[in-house]
Amino acid sequence: MAVCIAVIAKENYPLYIRSVPTQNELKFHYTVHTSLDVVEEKISAVGKAMADQRELYLGLLYPTEDYKVYGYVTNSKVKFVIVVDSSNASLRDNEIRSMFRKLHNSFTDVMCNPFYNPGDTIRSKAFDGMVSTMMVQTS
């Protein structure tokens, strides 16, 4: 399960970012922000070849000692970043993919809301709830 999930706008400002435990929030913000470097690198690397059939899932962006950072980019260049605890080795690539898919679906729902103004930070409860199910449960 993820320790941090972030949705980042095309212009690279955060639309949504949530992490557990909360006291480390700042660190996660730094991690997610730095990961954008790799996201951009990956997008531009693939972008030239075949922008159309590009896979949305970017895979492991970079590992750190404590966390693994995975990335995903929608066709509208909104980035999803999931940070997973390194010690949580039971998570397979497929599970990360399915997490991203769920995130993307939920994000699409948010965008479909006529009252949501694209570009605003996401405050949807449904989205928040869905993210909660993917986060590490802190008891």
Partner: peptide
């Protein structure tokens, strides 16, 4: 950089 990209915590 952080201001430009709007990362408020940073």
């Amino acid at each position: 950089l952080y201001v430009a990209e709007g990362w408020s915590l940073q």
